[in-house]
């Protein structure tokens, strides 16, 4: 049995080695070389001493936080409502459906929707509010990013709520809890793992969004993702790009550690 198991894991191990482990090693390796190919720690020194990079990092974290908070705010009630409806699977499919469409296509669609002559502005004009600059604002960037991430937040939360035994809710009420107390003392703590999984699935990718910052945000928000792209494709400073990449990876590990499963507290 053991040997058979080992055999079946070969494709994935190969995949992992080629496309996950090797790139990681390469990024760490690259981050120790400057633009002329000499070994150096300067990239890290620069990153830590330059106000620009630190501001970018803060920017990334701040916007990722905003996006995550917004998606969570929308997703939790949605997931709760979803778990109570009759046609769960159909609704779930409708929510997942947009994730099958290419990210760029969705971004371009929003350019059309938010543009000066787009449907939102025409709608506003129709009601006499006049046209507004919607595209290339921070708000539109956050809105579109949240739109794209919402399914990844809803799914884990929905699963957690759906697994809740109805008798637990009855037990809570039976013991005298109001609806709000039932939610705060039973439902939320028991679905917290779903929330954590959702936060991971949204916050981490949000740290390195770069297409949306350009297409929707109009490059006003420079995140770490944008910086990496610029370094690799424009300034060709692979070393610096890799350094930022390493910082991102460390940030991801930190988030996973913070939101991950921990030992239950003892008393």
């Amino acid at each position: 049995m053991k040997r058979a198991h080992g055999f079946y894991s070969v494709p994935y191990v190969l995949w992992l080695a080629l496309f996950v482990i090797a790139p990681l090693v390469l990024i760490v390796y690259q981050s120790f070389f400057n633009i002329s190919g000499q070994f150096t720690f300067d990239n890290y020194k620069l990153y830590l001493s330059s106000g620009t990079y630190l501001r970018m990092t803060l920017n990334s974290v701040w916007y990722a936080l905003l996006i995550t908070a917004l998606t969570l705010l929308i997703s939790y009630p949605t997931a709760y409502w979803l778990s109570q409806t009759k046609h769960k699977q159909l609704w779930l499919l409708l929510i997942i459906l947009p994730t099958w469409i290419n990210l760029l296509l969705k971004a371009y669609a929003f350019i059309g929707i938010f543009s000066q002559g787009g449907s939102v502005n025409r709608f506003l004009q129709f009601f006499g509010f006049g046209a507004h600059q919607l595209l290339f604002t921070n708000t539109s960037f956050i809105l579109v990013a949240a739109y794209i991430e919402i399914p990844f937040m809803i799914l884990p939360i929905f699963n957690a709520i759906d697994e809740l035994k109805p008798s637990l809710l009855n037990a809570s009420k039976d013991l005298g809890a109001t609806n709000w107390q039932t939610f705060s003392k039973v439902v939320f703590p028991l679905t917290l793992d779903g929330v954590k999984a959702g936060v991971q699935a949204v916050f981490i990718p949000s740290l390195s969004l770069f297409m949306l910052t350009r297409l929707i945000g109009g490059n006003k928000v420079i995140t770490l993702g944008t910086a990496i792209e610029e370094h690799f494709l424009v300034t060709q400073n692979w070393g610096m790009g890799s350094t930022i990449g390493v910082v991102l990876i460390i940030a991801m590990i930190a988030i996973m550690f913070l939101t991950g499963e921990r030992k239950k507290r003892g008393r």
Binding site: K165, S167, N170, A171, S172, D174, V186, L190
Partner: peptide
């Protein structure tokens, strides 16, 4: 008060 068939104890 009720004692439930599946006990319905709070696992957390």
């Amino acid at each position: 008060n009720t004692v439930f068939q599946d006990y319905a104890l709070f696992p957390h």
